[in-house]
Design a protein around this nucleic acid. Structure first.
Lengths: 187, 187
DNA sequence: ACCTGAACACCGTTCAAGT
DNA sequence: ACCTGAACACCGTTCAAGT
């Protein structure tokens, strides 16, 4: 069995980053949580940049898998669209956390390039998935689906951010309901 | 003339917080920008909590004034609604910055209570303004306008965040256009 | 292979002391 | 009233030494 420690670091760093961001990530707290010394982390992930990039990459890979399990050229694209906000709701359920990439988007100015790359990838896979689902659900052209995908992605991330600021998941549900009533999301 | 220094601190802190957040706010850089020593800032704003709360309070007060100048029980509520995303666009135009309160919403876990209070106030005045404008524009009941206000506020903040993550203001415009096409915002 | 203590250079925050 | 020196706590990183 190869390193469980590296996986433990990745998991703890992901949870921490979803609550405190890249800036708020620190080796000493991470190490204490895992039960090793902070210097040991550097054996697995040499620098903070490496850690941040690895965590963000894993994050969008996991998200990609979740989205693919939700819909992948199958039936019921409208149902997948209806379920999409739920993938963001989970972070709030999990200790009022938010999307790792939303937090890191705010921190854009202070992000090393390798981390920025992975944050962009998260947006890209969400946008691409939404555009494909929208095309299947509505039959509209690629440009229209792209704009709509962009609108839905930004809107759902925004709802999550607003809910976090009050530590109230009902605010998330309210905003999503508002999107449905307005026609941005399917009822 | 009372303290210009305090105003200089407030202005520099606001710009910094819109780019680096509350955590990224630091006395030494602020001081260097103003031309005093970092310890001197504490004479005007005793703690980082005081600074953060003062800056966030000023931020929503200024926003309130901007919104009131945009619409205050006058004619053309639909026009005011159309202009609303522009108030968020300005931050992006200003060095790819974002709403101070969006950044601080992400940082919720690390915010002292007095700062949280002012962050909440920003959301409240936006929500209240939007609900009033929507009521005037659509004639719908208070509950429906409240949900719609919540949806618009979250969506516009989300569009801003997404645009920052790519340093591309066209992504903001694209998402807003998507909201219009979907019917969340008036065309 | 994997972990650690100790040290390094650096930085934000605080407060007693200065003028 | 207004400002600062200096101490303090904490950070990411390195590296020699340990198992």
């Amino acid at each position: 069995m190869s390193s469980n420690v590296r996986e433990d670091i990745m998991a703890a760093a992901r949870r921490a980053a979803q609550a405190h961001g890249y800036t708020g990530l620190n080796f000493r707290e991470l190490a204490a949580e895992i039960g090793i010394k902070s210097a040991s982390i550097h054996y697995h992930l040499p620098t903070k940049t490496d850690l941040g990039a690895a965590v963000a990459k894993r994050y969008w890979e996991d998200s990609q898998a979740v989205l693919d399990s939700l819909w992948n050229d199958g039936a019921d694209p409208a149902g997948a669209l209806r379920a999409y906000p739920g993938t963001f709701r989970q972070s709030l359920e999990n200790g009022n956390r938010i999307c790792l990439c939303s937090f890191m988007s705010a921190e854009y100015d202070d992000l090393p390039d390798p981390v920025r790359t992975e944050v962009s990838a998260f947006a890209e896979i969400n946008l691409a998935w939404l555009a494909r689902v929208l095309a299947a659900a509505t039959g509209q052209d690629a440009a229209a689906c792209g704009r709509r995908a962009s609108a839905i992605f930004a809107a759902v991330a925004g709802a999550q951010l607003m809910a976090r600021s009050r530590a109230d998941i009902a605010l998330f549900d309210g905003a999503i309901e508002g999107y449905r009533e307005a026609g941005l999301l399917p009822a």
